[in-house]
Simulated scan of single mutants.
Amino acid sequence: MKKIFLTALLATGLLATAQVQQNTPPQINVSGEGKVLVMPDLVDISIGVTNTGADAATVKKANDQAIDAAIKYLKSQKLDPKDYQTQRVSLNKTYDYDKKKYNFIAQQTIMIHLKDITKYDALMLGLTDAGVNTINGVTFKTSKEEQYETEARIKAIADARKKAEDYTKALGQPLGKALMVTDNSQTYYPVVRNMAMMEKGMAADGAQETLAPGEITITANVQISYALGN
């Protein structure tokens, strides 16, 4: 009896699968990509202060003084308080095996969202004078992100349809309507990292240019299923 039940259940499952396959219209699945190259007009800057010494209190005090001066400098430049934020604060004890003694390393990181990219060099010079001695990296962005993402999506759809038309033309079958559209886009901004230690007076000339923004790429990726005609 149990075998009969299992056989009937299996038959029912196979029948259901066959009906689904029969009801599924012939289709073609393609992917499309759209890219828009733009000049960045925003930059996120990760800067920090690092101090090392044998006494924890002295090291932390030196770090706090430099960070205090850096924040006061940012305020003097009329940056919106929402455009800079403390990211990480640490005080670690390490052991120097060569000198056979302990040291303390104090670090603090601030992320700055600079809305006028032309002020980068002057801002970094002022922060260096304030005591900032580390650049963790910069990320270029655009203030028209939504606009360019829309353009990239339209290009991705056109790219997918062109592929589908190429395939159906080769097959000798008409291309039907879109059955499903899946957006696989992920916004990614490359980060320029150098982990550089900055030194006082590294840019004596305030007109010095040290940032080359280049272009950033806004990308959209889409997966589309089209009905395939007879």
Rank of each mutant, 00 (worst) to 15 (best):
A8T: 13
L10I: 13
L14Y: 09
L15E: 05
Q22A: 13
T24L: 08
Q27L: 12
V43I: 15
V43E: 01
D44K: 11
I45N: 04
N51C: 07
A56H: 07
T58I: 12
A62M: 13
A62D: 15
D83I: 03
Q85L: 01
T86S: 06
R88G: 01
R88C: 00
V89K: 10
L91F: 01
K93V: 03
T94K: 08
D96Q: 05
K99M: 04
K101C: 02
Y102P: 03
I105M: 01
Q107A: 09
Q108T: 00
M111L: 15
I112V: 15
L123P: 07
M124T: 01
L127M: 07
T128I: 11
A130Q: 04
G131T: 07
V132A: 08
N136P: 00
N136R: 10
T139G: 01
I154K: 09
I157K: 07
E165L: 12
E165Q: 15
K169A: 15
P174W: 06
L179N: 04
T182R: 11
Q186I: 10
Y188I: 14
V191E: 15
V192Y: 13
R193L: 09
R193Q: 15
M195A: 12
E199P: 03
G201C: 08
G206E: 13
A207C: 04
E209A: 15
T210L: 10
S225N: 13
